[in-house]
Design a binder for these strands. Structure first.
Lengths: 234, 234
DNA sequence: ACCTGAACACCGTTCAAGT
DNA sequence: ACCTGAACACCGTTCAAGT
């Protein structure tokens, strides 16, 4: 065996390697730090070399999302199995919370998924699984369709929230609760009433696990009621 | 009256004028087209002049959101009035659909609101109104707090959806439904089953009015059931 | 087939200089 | 007090040239 040359250490650059490195860099330093020059540097190569493996930066960002969702699909499977037939709520809940776990590992992914309209095959495959689960649970296509819309980004494990309870340690602990009480009496009273001691496992703002699951369960309950016809709202 | 000089035509540049012009430019050509040089051009001034009225671009983006939400607050009022006391669901529904109408006029706003953590006074004031409405409707602070999380960005009128039904005219009408049926049988069947003829009044993707209201109503129904104790889920 | 270096057309922003 | 012009340190990307 001639074993090639030792310079293979630096070689082997291909699309997948580029995408994995980009994902790792974004995980580590955020999406803003992901420039072509910076990524090239990370891979020991000039920025322009990357263009041999990706079409352009947009293509790279799409590829990053695609890679992550492929990994997610491998974890959740095709959906619509026996578990969904006997209890679609639990099956859906498990699927969505798995997606959420993946998104928590790549906090830049939700923003990226939302900001680009590209609906790649892995993303379609994920939603096919959601739909298969709904159908196994007895949903009509019409109600399943509404459900996909109602779940929105929650179906794939994230929830962009806006309400960021002040004092949650995030660089603004000096909230003037006195002055706030005058202008925003209800918010001030709520903050005094509700103790927020949850861990910092958030996507974006104050979207912690408990709150995510609360919102998800309200939706799932409401959808189940509509499926069984318990809600006859015109 | 000396009436000053006629050069006042171009003068009068101030923070509000800059923000209004930025909003108008973003409405017209999208957020990507909003560069400092471009905006300066629009106002008949060098880009660097803008820095006399705003601290930097981030400050300007914050100001744009702030301006819009101030206008929204003027339209919806403080919340928690007699209407909320007699029927909080309808009061909330009206408030949220008004917010949605504003967001539809400034389609770049949702993305901007989500992407920055700045929680400006007008935004806090809007949520104070949401909370006041919930309290008037008989919510405990604890349930109201969960509700704010559960509503998420829906509370202020938008909903980032991911499911973008192909064939909705949006530059990808050439979907190979044959090939799709093999890989994604449920999605293909649903598309065949559900006719999507809604107007193009969407924020982002396929988030049209009907679907937005469906998801909102599922949530409001579920929340009302929790408020009255109809749902006793541990 | 893959990588490089220089260059282009853009950014946001600083700074010294004008009035 | 407000505006300007040149400059700086970045972008993504093109292109001709190397091996």
């Amino acid at each position: 065996m001639t074993q090639a040359t030792t310079k293979t250490v630096r070689a082997g650059l291909n699309r997948d390697r580029v995408l994995r490195a980009a994902i790792e860099l974004a995980d580590r330093e955020g999406l803003a730090a992901l420039s072509m020059r910076r990524l090239g540097n990370e891979l020991g190569v000039e920025a322009m070399s990357l263009y041999n493996h990706i079409a352009n930066k947009d293509d790279m960002l799409d590829g990053m999302v695609q890679t992550i969702v492929e990994d997610l699909n491998a974890r959740v499977g095709p959906g619509g199995g026996a578990d969904a037939q006997s209890d679609w709520v639990t099956a859906m809940r498990t699927r969505i919370l798995t997606a959420r776990a993946v998104m928590l590992q790549h906090k830049w992914a939700p923003g990226l998924i939302e900001s680009r309209s590209s609906f790649s095959p892995p993303l379609v495959a994920y939603y096919e699984g959601v739909l298969a689960t709904l159908r196994a649970g007895g949903f009509s296509y019409d109600l399943a369709h509404h459900t996909l819309h109602a779940l929105g980004s929650k179906a794939i494990g994230f929830n962009q929230e806006l309400f960021n309870p002040v004092g949650a340690g995030d660089s603004q602990p000096d909230v003037d609760i006195e002055a706030m009480a005058e202008q925003f009496p209800h918010l001030a009273e709520m903050l005094a009433d509700v103790v927020h001691e949850g861990p910092e496992t958030t996507i974006g703002w104050c979207d912690d696990q408990t709150e995510f699951e609360f919102g998800l369960d309200v939706l799932l309950d409401g959808l189940e009621r509509r499926r069984t016809g318990a809600t006859r709202r015109k």
